[in-house]
Design a protein around this nucleic acid. Structure first.
Lengths: 187, 187
DNA sequence: TCAGTAAACGGAGGGTTGCTCCGCTTAAAT
DNA sequence: ATTTAAGCGGAGCAACCCTCCGTTTACTGA
């Protein structure tokens, strides 16, 4: 990769992060190019679609999400690890206004971080299911859907972020098998 | 209301429904005006925002949603009635491609049907909470966000519609109070 | 050091859409 | 028939997306 290409790519990522943070995930891509002091053509050459750009700006974050989750999960119950994973996913879905709505697509954008995050989520989910803490018919997509719902709900009003932990706990509870099948649930 | 205004309003609604059905909720409003054989200014005078137009095209549908829900809820448990309400809300959020993303705004557009639907949702939610089947800290907004997330998630992959009943069940389960607070949950 | 070359750059420009504004038309009241 | 205000229409401007192609520039090999 040529040096100027690498440099421009980095500038674009920094600019995109700033613009998306300020004006949301639907911000003008012209503004991104301007802030990066780069031609609009250069932006489109590096990132053919908005989702590709979004995926790239989130790449590092999703990489550290997966990393952190792996590190702490050794010392936690499967369900608690999954709960924290979901909570963190919700957090990252909220870094740009409007990102949550396309979380599913962005996670499929193929970047390293997105892949690491989905792999980690799958791992946690299967572990929790193996231990009988989560119903067997739940899929990772369902968990991502939860993250979308919680993030959307939190972005509705000003004090929304405070409700995230409670909503997360609630929905994780909903994933457990019905309690008459396994006696009283520990709380 | 003047006769020509009424006539144009009706033409616009019919045209909007057709165009939104064909090309999704993000379709060009110029196309709507053209199909209605009406000036674009007339469209904006009757419906100042896209959401207002969407709300108006969905008005009847939301009216029947509320009606049906009221009719059947007499013979159902509060929680089951809420589950069916959510499922039907998801269904209507999918009649136009891309409608789900603005479901929250559309429901606040103030039309009779939207108002009836939110009132009915509120009623069902409060009933379920009074009977201890749903946690007290849940708000109607949360339920609407669930519908948005389910609909968005379902529209993002090919086999999405098949997951709707499972997802609604999953979310409704999450709304229940923790089981040691109320003994064994009936299933 | 210095061509030669392919990769990368930049931004003009065409197409699309959103939305406003204001001169003209017309339904309806008197 | 006259009046008037509600309603109509669409030109027009601004914003945006994305492509295309002439120009520039980083690397390579001699």
């Amino acid at each position: 990769m040529r040096a100027d290409a690498r440099r421009n790519r980095d500038r674009l990522l920094a600019a995109a992060d700033a613009v998306f943070t300020e004006r949301g995930a639907d911000a003008s891509l012209n503004d991104v190019a301007k802030r990066a002091e780069v031609g609009i053509g250069t932006l489109y050459r590096h990132f053919p679609t908005r989702e590709a750009l979004l995926g790239a700006t989130c790449d590092e974050r999703f990489l550290t999400l997966a990393q952190h989750s792996r590190e702490r999960s050794a010392s936690l119950s499967a369900l608690e690890a999954l709960r924290l994973f979901l909570e963190e996913l919700v957090h990252y879905a909220g870094i740009y206004q409007g990102l949550a709505a396309s979380l599913g697509i962005v996670l499929r954008s193929g970047t390293e971080g997105c892949h690491a995050t989905t792999a980690e989520g799958q791992r946690l989910l299967e572990a929790a299911q193996r231990e009988g803490e989560v119903r067997g018919d739940i899929r990772l997509d369902d968990v991502v859907c939860m993250a979308m719902a919680i993030s959307l709900s939190a972005s509705q009003d000003a004090s929304g972020t405070k409700r995230i932990p409670r909503l997360t706990g609630m929905f994780i509870d909903g994933l457990r098998p019905p309690c008459d099948a396994r006696g009283t649930r520990p709380r």
